[in-house]
């Protein structure tokens, strides 16, 4: 048996350990990013033999056409609704459960599990359940509305309402996640800070919150905001399950448009441009998030 010198053997070992993962990262992440960037400047269609360079035309189409703008503005509106509601409710629930844990820890744990349930549940299956709840005639929502003397609504087929309905489901799904992050933040606040506030005369619930809790939660809140934003920008499952972007593109969003243009209409070039815009937004958000994580580590 020929033996390689030890330095060569060590090198081979390193390649054996690191090589497969690195190669996989390159083939399935970095190469595709390059390809999608290139494709976004072409008119390529899936299955076509050739393509032409069309410069920024795809981007012009996305930002210039009603349809493209609709997807963008819908996504922004969706994000604008989900972020404050989901983060705010998450904070309120976390604060409530944190205090509840002082005198009823078991109950607090049960409620925490309930709020977190939608995070673990399969969103598509739950969307199907939501669809039944929102059914115009048979759904519990409209039935309750009618029983209370209100007007039944077409939650998923009224152009003016549909996006808000999807946002509500989005909030329902993410509150529990934000709650958990806030609970971790709350648990990290040293108890003696509250004692100090009490001594300084800030003993009431509200003043406690504003003098101690809120400032101490600052970094957590920033972090939660960015995570909620990244997740909201990716909204796809509910759209694909409940509205397919309709009616009349009233609930079309970036990722759904990407899917529809690329994989239903096979317009790979245009879909690539949508992808790049989506990527740019998420990249910006993730970089902000990295900076926050870094800062958090610094202050600990």
């Amino acid at each position: 048996m020929t033996r390689f010198p030890r330095s060569v053997r060590e090198g081979l070992t390193d390649a054996w350990l690191v090589g497969p993962a690195t190669l996989a990262l390159l083939t399935f992440i970095f190469l595709p990013v390059v390809i999608v960037a290139v494709l976004s400047f072409t008119d390529y269609q899936f299955g076509a033999r050739s393509f032409g360079w069309i410069g920024l035309e795809n981007y012009e189409k996305l930002f210039g056409s009603t349809l493209g703008r609709r997807a963008l503005s819908n996504t922004l509106l969706y994000v604008a609704i989900v972020i404050p509601a989901s983060v705010g409710l998450g904070l309120v629930v976390a604060a409530g459960l944190h205090r509840l844990a002082d005198w009823a820890p078991a109950l607090s744990n049960v409620l925490r599990a309930v709020y977190f349930l939608p995070v673990a549940a399969t969103l598509v299956a739950m969307s199907v359940a939501w669809q039944m709840m929102l059914h115009p005639t048979l759904g519990v929502v409209n039935q309750t509305l009618v029983a209370l003397g209100g007007q039944p609504q077409n939650w998923l087929s009224d152009r003016g309402i549909v996006l808000y309905t999807l946002a509500a489901i989005g909030i329902w799904q993410t509150v529990g996640y934000n709650m958990v992050l806030f609970l971790a933040g709350l648990a990290a606040i040293p108890a003696d800070l509250y004692d100090a506030a009490e001594v300084d005369g800030a003993g009431g619930n509200w003043s406690r919150f504003w003098t101690v809790t809120w400032p101490m939660l600052g970094p957590t809140t920033l972090f939660v905001l960015v995570i909620t934003a990244t997740n909201a920008f990716r909204v796809f499952e509910t759209v694909a399950t409940l509205t397919k972007g309709g009616p009349a593109f009233a609930s079309d969003t970036l990722v759904y448009a990407l899917y529809r243009e690329g994989f239903v209409y096979f317009k790979a070039g245009y879909a690539s441009a949508i992808t790049m815009v989506f990527f740019a937004v998420l990249l910006a958000l993730t970089l902000i998030q990295f900076r926050i994580v870094e800062r958090r580590v610094h202050y600990r």
């Binding site: 090198g11 990262l25 390159l26 595709p32 790979a268 998420l282 990249l283 970089l287």
Partner: peptide, 27 residues
């Protein structure tokens, strides 16, 4: 080993790429 920092940097960079971005080329 040589290239260790490069590969770690590559890993961190890959963290920035959402799966949706790679869908079209992979398809």
């Amino acid at each position: 080993f040589k290239g260790r920092t490069v590969i770690f940097a590559l890993t961190l960079a890959a963290l920035l790429v959402p799966f949706h971005v790679t869908a079209i080329p992979i398809f």
